[in-house]
Design a protein around this nucleic acid. Sequence first.
DNA 1: CTAGCCTTGAAC
DNA 2: GTTCAAGGCTAG
Length: 450
Amino acid sequence: MESRQALCLIELCPVCGDQVSGYHYGLLTCESCKGFFKRTVQNNKQYVCAEQQECTIDRGQRKRCPSCRFLKCLHVGMRLEAVRADRKRGGRNKFGPMYKRDRALKQQRDALIQDGGFRLDSGSSTHHRNLTFTTGFHPLPMIPNTSLPTAQPPHLCSLLPSTQYQSTSFSNWKSQHSNNGSPGPRDGKSTHILYSSPSSRIHSFSPPAPSMPQLVMEFLRCDPDELQLQSKISARILQEEENGTPNTFSLMCVMADQTLFSIVEWARTSIFFKQLKVDDQMKLLHSCWSDLLLLDTVCRNVLQGRENSLLLVTGQEMELSYVASHAGLTLASLVQRGQDLVEKLLILKVDRQEFACIKFLVLFNPDVKQLEDPQFVESVHEQAESSLLEYTLSTSSHLIGRFAHLLLCLSEIRSLSTLAEDYLYCKHLSGGGPCNNLLIEMLHAKRSCA
DNA sequence: CTAGCCTTGAAC
DNA sequence: GTTCAAGGCTAG
């Protein structure tokens, strides 16, 4: 009860910014958006926007345009399949474990931020950085309300100034929903992919309480909301499955593509990066997208994954034995190397804060050529590196060489992601891989630069 | 139609 | 028995 209230106090509804009342249809929302979503789906409402589908949805204006409100509900990841076709009351649905894990993650993150903030405020300030530091909590990254579904795959340059989102297909779902059939997604398909149970690595590290460098906290705040991401990408995968996307590999490509969108969005709204000119932003992202994609997966598996399985961004798990037997030699060995890396990072007990720093280290790569502002990139890289060093020394000063080990892992990430890129590119050229999406745009961009 | 409060019931 | 996310009810 208390934890629920504590959660409510700090979370804002991703649709309208009102106070959250609990998990509803896949994520934390307010009571009114919960009701609105339910009425819309249950009654098959069709709304039309009187404007250009760009209406602002906030607490004061959410009643003005139901069409844009519903679109925003879908964009932030509210799940159509959580509305029961049979209208049965009570009980729990399949999202239960997902909610539970998200709660644990949020608690862990908030504890870290609160603890770090407290110590920074009260402790003797041994380091001074010229950084504005916002006190209090920073809930979800705000979703720009100009975001609209798009039929064409958007290019990176169009994503950077103002982000667009992929829409979920309401009409596809509706035909299934109004069919009087069983609610929810099909369970028969993809039997090798399972929803992860809560007994994952998340509990294996108790959060340390060292004095956290201010910049590390800022980096941590930039991290996207995991459940929102999970919901959004799961909805997209469900849509692909309903559209008959044939095999697991193709679905994985869609998953990677959608994760890439989220990485671009993370970068776009992150400290330092948003100060860069768009050209420099593009150059940096073109250079490191695959490192970040790999790092994202590795980080998820180190912090929340379980032995012998691969935890996906959708919260689903894929057994490594399945990968080994179905993926083909090259891909299976890539996954195995990734898993070895996860093991190394587990031994080093790399935590969320360190991953947050590493992401910035990777993003602000000073080796990228022809930047307009190479000094700035260099300086952010140095700041990220010294913050990471400072943090690792404060948490594990007794472990000599741990920092060096971390940097070694970083180079392993780089070489592994290069191999993964080559693999994808070959697949793409031979017609077996994905096409016409952000993933492919990035693959081509790097090769045309080189 | 909205949104706050109420009832229900499977999972824990 | 408790929890809490579903659906239901209803004044405004």
